[in-house]
């Protein structure tokens, strides 16, 4: 059973087809790179997997469970076991680092003592133990990136979706964070789906690369 399965999934935006009958299977623990030029449908596929968009055609399965079908989301985004790091990071600016990490734990009704433990654990995992009371605006770009990662991983998702999270970072910082992502994936064993149009990033992070063009799968290194 695949961790993620897309069966002939399509998604239309006004005037254009963003995703065109895409079928693919992603296995547990894989690090899949969705690669391709702007507008090829990479981010749309991530949003469809997360449940933030509803497919116009096709089916989406997560861990063998049908989560979305044409025009219907059968499983809410929060119940899919999916975490996502957004391109703009989407850190809540009015909350501290700790509160950002805590939010998802609180929504899942994790007891306070356990929440505190997880916050400390996640913060130290990404090297931000000393910044728990800081607001996102007080942090550097790299630190914000780590907060986004810690916040997403705190709720222990089985699948981590990352939508060009390093597009605003310089090369050195990007390389450092790529190392951290690999380390975290090794430790926590989540399935990673990573969107980028940077070849270097794709080569460094992925165990498999899916190249998209005009909403279709052009090549897939995982398929022989």
């Amino acid at each position: 059973m695949s961790m993620i399965e897309l069966r002939s999934v399509s998604k239309d935006y006004p005037g254009r087809r963003a995703v065109d009958a895409v079928s693919l299977r992603i296995e547990t623990g894989e690090r899949v790179i969705l690669f391709g030029p702007s507008g090829c449908g990479k981010s749309t596929i991530l949003a469809l997997i997360a449940g933030l968009l509803i497919p116009d055609a096709g089916e989406i399965l997560i861990d063998g469970r049908l989560v979305a079908t044409a025009k219907r989301n059968l499983v809410e985004p929060s119940a899919r076991g999916v975490g996502m790091v957004f391109q703009d990071l989407a850190l809540w600016p009015h909350m501290s680092v700790a509160e950002n990490i805590e939010f998802g734990l609180r929504a899942k009704r994790v007891p306070k003592s356990e929440r505190d433990r997880r916050i400390r654990e996640m913060a130290s995992l990404v090297g931000l133990g000393d910044y728990l009371t800081a607001k996102p605006g007080e942090l550097s770009g790299g630190q914000q990136q780590r907060v986004a990662l810690a916040r997403t991983l705190a709720v222990e998702p089985r699948i981590l979706l990352m939508d060009e999270p390093m597009s605003n970072l310089d090369d050195a910082l990007g390389e450092q964070l790529r190392g951290e992502i690999l380390r975290l994936q090794n430790e926590l064993s989540f399935t990673l789906v990573y969107v980028t149009h940077n070849k270097e990033e794709a080569a460094a992070l992925g165990t498999r690369t899916i190249r998209l063009r005009q909403g279709r799968v052009e090549t897939d290194t995982g398929v022989v």
């Binding site: 997360a50 933030l52 809410e76 985004p77 957004f86 990071l89 989407a90 809540w92 709720v155």
Partner: peptide, 22 residues
Amino acid sequence: PPSLENAAELAGAGWFTILGEI
């Protein structure tokens, strides 16, 4: 940014929680 709400939704928060806290 819509991603702020999306992130909260993915974290498991209900709509009223998202409105009230985000």
